[in-house]
């Protein structure tokens, strides 16, 4: 057992087994208590819906995927730049930080109707909401990464006459990488949440839109199928960053 837990396979096998178990228990509960599908569909019904509505699901999944990814990429760009500004410039820190915190407390669902008025009920509000939800943790973590460079290291660099750019390149950037990856993993799921919120409020396509459509026509298995796809995409993106992180931050044990 001990040996298995330390092996690489454990990280895949255990969650897989847990998911299967969850589905089995779920299926049994629905069977035993005779829960109608429009309250809680059994996993078998959900998978069936996945097959039946295959083309519809695929189209909307792709839509959600690309809006999320574009929003996320925007968030990484803006978040990293903002983080560096806040981390390196006292002026930027004092001016921007309170504004960012204030902005972050605004519920993004409340902004979506506005975005829809400005840009129409299309992919743009979804992309923007994904961006708005995801950039904040990235900016904060980059700033944190720069801020936590040991004071002695800063002294060493200053006494060598290193420029701000050199300090960033040699120490600040690599030092913030672990923080950046931590934030990317959080931000990836935030981006999905943002896109789906927006799609369910004002959109013409996407998984959020599909879920709202399905529930309003009492096609609950389809709504669950969409949720399942969302969860799968979230886990996949998370796993991707864990993989890249291991390659990039090779020095961490």
């Amino acid at each position: 057992m001990e040996k298995f837990l330390k092996s690489k396979a454990a990280g895949f096998v255990l969650p897989f087994v847990a998911t299967i178990l969850l589905f089995v228990v779920w299926e049994l509960i629905v069977l035993i208590f005779k829960i109608p599908p429009f309250n809680l569909p059994a996993p078998s019904k959900i998978f069936q819906a996945m097959v039946n509505f295959g083309p519809q699901l695929t189209v909307n999944t792709l839509r959600t995927l690309w809006t999320t990814l574009i929003g996320f990429i925007l968030a990484v760009g803006v978040g990293v730049v903002l983080g560096f500004l806040i981390g390196y410039s006292k002026v930027a820190y004092l001016t921007l930080y309170p504004l960012l915190v204030a902005f972050n407390t605004i519920p993004k669902a409340a902004i979506v109707p506005l975005l829809a008025i400005w840009f129409g009920a299309n992919a743009i509000p979804a992309t923007l909401t994904a961006f708005l939800l995801a950039f904040f943790p990235i900016a904060v973590n980059v700033a944190l990464g720069l801020d936590t460079v040991e004071p002695e290291m800063k002294d060493v660099l200053r006494s060598l006459g290193a420029s701000q750019i050199e300090t960033f390149q040699k120490v600040g950037w690599p030092h913030s990488l672990p923080y950046i990856f931590a934030s990317l993993k959080i931000a990836a799921s935030f981006a999905f949440i943002g896109a789906v919120i927006s799609e369910s409020i004002a959109s013409n396509a996407g998984l959020g839109y599909l879920i709202v459509q399905a529930t309003s026509s009492f096609d609950i298995p389809l709504a669950f199928a969409a949720l399942l796809v969302l969860a799968l995409m979230g886990v996949t993106l998370y796993g991707f960053f864990v993989f890249v992180e291991k390659k990039v931050i090779y020095w961490a044990r």
């Binding site: 040991e150 002695e152 290291m153 002294d155 060493v156 006494s159 040699k170 120490v171 690599p174 931050i249 090779y250 020095w251 961490a252």
Partner: peptide, 13 residues
Amino acid sequence: VGMAFQNPVMLPW
């Protein structure tokens, strides 16, 4: 100047 402190800060990467 060269500096060394009680904490031997090295770059972990």
